[in-house]
Design a protein around this nucleic acid. Structure first.
Lengths: 340, 340
DNA sequence: ACTGGCACTCGCTACTTACGAGTGCCAAGC
DNA sequence: GCTTGGCACTCGTAAGTAGCGAGTGCCAGT
């Protein structure tokens, strides 16, 4: 498959023009807007080859060409030049993130920032508990048979949950329980907690065993099984930009997918070390999102990764710009977390 | 304005048919589908009057009639028969809400339930802090200059926030601080807290005064100013039902409004004692939502109200059904909270 | 290998026509 | 005096037609 330099150049031009205008691009317009140094007829021949190879496509016989998912993929992998952030963007990021008081605050600001900068739907995963360690476990007696357990992770995540005890406990008992769980679990990675829990019960004094038993069940539920992961979402209104043309006619499936936390996690949470990842249309595993693209990156203090963030938009998307923004925001957030 | 019984009956029929079919309803169809006992011509005369009074409207000269906001209002106020919940709905509510472990859990389940039952966008406000009392304030030392303050309200709300202290404190100091704040603030209504805070600082020992000072600033910020109120949202995908016909062409403004927590609060949070409230189209204060209707109710244990919940949908909405559902869900949630 | 020329395709717009649902009005009837 | 059947009228929608033009593929010439 002979894709010489000019053909690649033509593909790049098609992608750029189509992204900018949202209209199928023809040979004549291409030659006019880019300095390709050849005639429309030549471009047409190149386009015919590109179409044969599946990189572009005609919506109807007598229309211009539109990139296919495969075309975007090639563009992203080999043709897109890195687009440095504008000064304004850098400033926006800093202004937005400075003054966050809280992990919650950081996450919310970040997700809104991302949505605003990319003009797309933004998703930010909270630092994953499975990649966090227990900093402290606090037990707050609410009544003699009720405890509020608060887990504070080194990533700043805080989870709390009410525990209904089978037997009443006294104040001193709570102190006991608190000391025990912190001794055993403090500093541990969340993912290492489950096997330790049984020991927790075994080693506690007989009188406290029932209490410790329910307590540890709840701990497991809360920390490992249930809201293990959380996400924040913003910018759904951006889906309506560009008419209903993107997303093959209906926002329905997209909105439905975005309602499911599980799906968002799958989308944004499966980050591999330090790479920015782009999923284009069909490459997406979720059926409802086959007409969308995702750009995601991992973030975390230093070079470790504690969570993912990214955006979702039409396949017809400004990839270079979006990738640059997502990457930059991920880095800023990582730095911010490192300061704690 | 002579709106005799038959005219009202005609209006009701128009609303019901239009809601069901989404199409302007004509005199002939009306007579066929409802037993009005009169001829189409008579109905036409009635419709002319109803139109003159502003209750209905013709999209175009030669089309049937469509209710106006005013028409829906009259319908809701005087014409709609209460529609009892189906057995299936009752069961759904119970099944959905049983087994909630947590306030967060309750709110999330509720909002999804509401969205599913009404097939509309659902909004649930967390129990308002301003209507809550402090049950307990926990201070967890993270380092010598850092505290995690956790506030547990009687409504189940839990708020936490990291505090950066100006001076290092020892473990005993934290115990002191904890005792003091709980003595002064425990059991107080959140709305009564601000005036008490100054006393808190004044009465603490000189050594702890700087720490107490920042602590109380943060308390004020967290409890009163900042996330004072929170909301959960679900069912945005339901906006796409019925084409883009509802909402005068674009989902844009709606989605934008739903992104703003402040707006959601205004929408759902301003509940007055025990009444279910319906806002139709223009009655809505938020410009972006002028083409939508809101049905909301307050909820809380017993007859007190701690928060609001409701749904948002097209003005062309099944009001009786929606009202019944919102009311029922509010009651169930209230009962659930009462059990704590 | 590139280019200009050319016939061809086909979606889009504009225009016309036909249809029919729905109306308002009026004169007749209960 | 309300109700009713009749009837002319309006007007949005659907279907059909024509012309335009962007864009193409192909071919012969350089």
């Amino acid at each position: 498959m002979g894709l010489d330099d000019r053909k690649l150049e033509v593909l790049r031009a098609i992608v750029e023009d189509y992204v900018a205008t949202q209209e199928p691009v023809g040979s004549k317009a291409l030659v006019e807007r880019h300095q390709l140094g050849v005639s429309p007829a030549t471009v047409r021949n190149d386009m015919a080859v590109l179409e044969e190879e599946g990189y572009i496509q005609q919506p109807h016989t007598s229309a211009g060409r539109v990139p296919t998912d495969r075309g975007y993929r090639l563009f992203v992998d080999r043709l897109s030049r890195v687009k440095p952030l504008s000064q304004a963007e850098r400033r926006a990021i800093e202004r937005f993130l400075v003054g966050a008081v809280d992990l919650d605050d950081v996450v919310h600001r970040t997700v809104r920032l991302l949505a605003q900068l990319t003009r797309q739907v933004a998703v930010v995963q909270y630092p994953s508990l499975s990649r966090s360690s227990v900093r402290h476990l606090e037990l707050v007696p609410i009544s003699t048979t009720r405890l509020m357990v608060v887990m504070i992770a080194d990533t700043g995540r805080v989870e709390q949950r009410l525990v209904e005890l089978p037997t009443p406990v006294r104040f001193d008992d709570v102190t006991d329980l608190r000391r025990t769980v912190n001794e055993k679990l403090g500093g541990r990675r969340l993912s290492d907690v489950p096997p330790l829990v049984q020991a927790l019960v075994d080693e506690s004094s007989p009188a406290l065993r029932p209490a410790m038993s329910t307590l540890s069940t709840v701990l497991l539920e809360t920390l490992v099984e249930r809201h293990e992961e959380r996400v924040a979402l913003a910018g759904t209104a951006n889906l309506t930009r560009g008419g209903v043309l993107d997303f093959q006619g209906s926002l329905r499936p997209i909105l439905e997918a975005l309602e499911e936390e599980v799906i968002l996690l799958k989308l944004i949470g499966e980050v591999e070390p330090s790479r920015t990842r782009v999923l284009i249309g069909d490459e997406n595993e979720i059926d409802n999102l086959r007409s969308a693209s995702v750009v995601r990156a991992g973030y975390g203090p230093g070079s470790t990764i504690v969570g993912g963030l990214g955006v979702l938009g039409p396949t017809r998307m400004d990839y270079p710009g979006t990738i640059a923004t997502v990457r930059a925001v991920a880095r800023y957030v990582g730095d911010l977390l490192a300061q704690n």
